[in-house]
Amino acid sequence: MSTTDVVVIKNLTKTFDGREVIKRFDMTVKAGEIYGFLGANGAGKTTVLKLINGLSSKTFGDIKVLDQDISTHRETLLKNIGSVIEVPVFYEHLSAYANLAIHLAYLGISSDRQIKELVEAALERVGLPDTGNQAVSKFSLGMRQRLGIARAIVHKPKLLLLDEPINGLDPLGIREVRELLISLSQNDGVTIIISSHILNEIEHIADKIGVIVDGRIVEEVTLSEIREKFPEGLEDYFFDMMTGKNNKEI
């Protein structure tokens, strides 16, 4: 795995209505790494992902993606970022194929042949082959989630931001997405930041864990280091962090 830092955040602060919801936040994610982003509801995980993607603007601090400031290079960086943040929204009356084609056109890909190749490959990879002509309005919740992931990877991004990506998936779908993410990381070199409440899934795939409490990172640690201290697994570590039993200042 490369040691190149794909995401570097320093002293990030975000204020809403005069209240700091993200405060003195630091994060480092290396190339090809799967970074499990953990925290309680309302801790600020979704807000941070939106800030990395440029969907929200920082109050102050530094956010660099691929060594460029997201605030000043968002248009360029979006071609290298894929994301599923909150509930995926689609053009309901259009087909799955058309939704992905529109996304590619937005990113500047206009060749019909290239669009066809990219869309078909993405649908195949997320387990939605032969659904391209079907209207999204007919999709189940699980199919919509898969389509959201397809849209996030269709342009072959270098960075993937995933906020609860397995919501609505059955056990088979969860396993398939797990295998997809591992493949994207190991075979395609994609860097992934994934937030999920299903700790067992994070434990299956993550290289490193970052824990956010009350708007700031309180620890970044490799999964192997966690296993040394918590043989029973990630759940014990997470609850230890949340209850403050490890004596860290949170």
Rank of each mutant, 00 (worst) to 15 (best):
S83A: 15
I250S: 11
G142C: 00
Q186F: 00
T15Y: 00
F239V: 14
Q134L: 14
N80S: 15
E164M: 08
I102V: 12
E228M: 11
L147V: 06
R227P: 11
K23I: 14
G36D: 02
D163V: 04
D163K: 01
V126L: 02
K14G: 10
G233Y: 09
G244W: 09
K10R: 13
L107N: 06
K158P: 02
G61A: 03
G82M: 03
L234N: 07
H197Y: 02
T3L: 15
T28P: 01
I226M: 00
G233H: 03
H93N: 15
P171F: 06
Q134A: 13
L159G: 00
I174S: 04
V29D: 10
G148I: 03
V8P: 09
I192Y: 03
T243A: 08
L55C: 06
Y97K: 10
K229L: 10
G54Q: 08
M241G: 06
I182W: 09
E176M: 11
V84H: 06
I52F: 04
I205V: 13
E117K: 12
A206Y: 05
L234M: 01
V211T: 04
E20N: 13
N200G: 14
T243H: 03
V29F: 06
I166A: 11
L160F: 02
L94N: 11
N41R: 10
G233S: 07
N187I: 05
S95V: 09
F60W: 13
G32S: 04
V65M: 04
G54S: 10
I70L: 05
L66Q: 02
S56D: 13
L180E: 07
E203L: 04
R151H: 07
